[in-house]
Amino acid sequence: MNHDKDLKRILYVEDEPDIRTIAKMALEMVGDYEVMACASGAEALEKVSGFAPDLILLDVMMPGMDGPTTLQRLRANPTTAAIPVIFLTAKVQPAEIAHYQSLGALDVIAKPFDSMTLSDEAQRIWSHA
């Protein structure tokens, strides 16, 4: 575990309202995390500094600004550059995971995710980072 503090605050970025609701609920109620959910990359960029998350969960495919672009923008800003990011996507071929990691993501969580284990998975990836 390389972190000097625990995982507490998660910023969750997803355009689909159904998935956004269930993920927020799962992370809050099962994982006991403090969660802010954003509907777009633009909204995430706007709110990230105020919320100061320990971790960002980022959907890859979103209308407007997609996940990789959002990540790029996060990295370009010194105040948010160091926040670890996990991608969520249905595409989980090893080559694709490697590609996302090369962009700077910690790892990838496969969609559709299981709402009961989402928190554990986020925690596991975070702890191994």
Partner: peptide, 13 residues
Amino acid sequence: HKLAGSGGTFGYP
């Protein structure tokens, strides 16, 4: 794409 990404979470894997 939306369907693929959400179905399983809501019980339709």
